[in-house]
Simulated assay, not measured.
Amino acid sequence: MSASTHSPAELSTPASRRTVSEHARTVAEQADRHAVTLESLLAILRSPRLDDRIARNMAIDVAANALVGLRMATDQQRSGLLEPVVGAFARLRNDLRPLVRFGDLDVQFVEPPATGRALPGDVAHAARAIVRNAVLAFVDAGETRRVRIQWDCDGLNLLIGIRDDGLGQLSAHDDSLRPIVERVAVLDGSLSVASTPGWGSSLNIRIPLDPPVEPEPIVSAAELSIREREVLRLVASGARNHDIARELGISLNTVKFHVSNLLKKAGARSRAELGALTR
């Protein structure tokens, strides 16, 4: 049963809400993986270095490997096992390998220390999704040719550094970084963006390894302000931030502020999960 078909009575218990939240998170992570796979397939098919036969065979290999990887990732997510930080990073590198190999993007991977603390499954999945989203945002910008990805672990936090050589115009308020900002906020982490025009942008992210205390999910509209209820209604309908700002006559930054608060109050990890909990 999909999250959108649950009745209010079925979502009345914490266990039911957790089930819906987990389902929404899994769907969001699978969407990230599909996006990387599609970008990789396009890079192969567009590559001037490959003839039609070779490109077709490589595209088949990428699609088959992506399907196997997706199944393995889903199984591991359900198992709830810890992931060694080096192994989690290796899976990220494997996710991005086709895009790096056949695209125009030069990606440098800086290995984390082998002695780093094992990552909880939620943190490992979120970290890979964050990096994939960042790389896709750089690719979509069309000006990035080189990306440097670094992971480290200080025993309490996973530290992620991502740097590109693009236009250097990114900020934490860019819509392209919205999925990253939301994921980091829900995990009680921190994100900073430093950009130098003409030299590129750097993202520095800290994610606690121990999960934050999850707030109670939204159980009543009485807990929300009038404006929050209006924003929540539009988020649940699938409206984007720009549409919400135009509909309510408020600024884009105000919308982002309300969405961030709603995510924290609901204990949701993404807009999709927030919408599922609301429905």
Rank of each mutant, 00 (worst) to 15 (best):
L234Y: 04
G168Y: 10
H173I: 05
S190H: 11
V219W: 00
D188A: 15
P208I: 09
P215M: 08
H173Y: 12
G198M: 06
S225L: 05
V193D: 02
E214G: 04
V181H: 08
I205L: 03
Q169D: 13
L167D: 09
I180K: 04
P179I: 14
S195M: 10
L177F: 10
E214R: 15
S190Y: 03
D174V: 08
V184L: 13
R227W: 00
P179K: 14
W199I: 08
D210I: 10
A236H: 03
H242F: 01
R178T: 08
G200V: 09
P217C: 04
G238V: 06
L191C: 04
N204E: 12
A185L: 15
R240Y: 06
A194F: 06
L232M: 07
R206A: 11
I218S: 02
R229D: 00
A239N: 06
S225Y: 08
L177I: 08
V213Q: 14
P212N: 12
E230D: 13
G200S: 11
N241G: 05
E182T: 04
D174Y: 14
L224Y: 04
I218K: 01
H242E: 09
N204T: 06
V219T: 13
L203V: 13
L232P: 07
S201P: 00
E230N: 10
D164H: 11
V193Q: 03
P208F: 05
D174Q: 11
R240C: 03
H173L: 09
P212Q: 13
D188W: 01
L232A: 09
I180W: 10
A172T: 14
N204R: 15
H242M: 00
A222W: 01
R206D: 03
L234K: 05
I207M: 07
A185P: 01
L191K: 10
V184K: 11
I226P: 00
P215C: 06
W199L: 15
S190N: 13
L177P: 02
A236Q: 07
G198D: 04
D174I: 05
I218G: 02
D175H: 15
P179T: 10
N204F: 13
L209R: 03
V231H: 05
P215S: 07
A221E: 04
A194V: 15
G238E: 02
S195L: 09
R229V: 02
H173S: 12
A194P: 06
A239M: 04
L224R: 06
I207T: 06
S176I: 05
V213F: 11
P215H: 09
R229M: 00
R178G: 00
S201G: 03
V186R: 13
I226S: 04
P215I: 04
D164I: 11
D210C: 04
E223V: 07
N204K: 12
S192H: 12
L203M: 08
L191I: 15
G200D: 05
P215Q: 06
L187W: 01
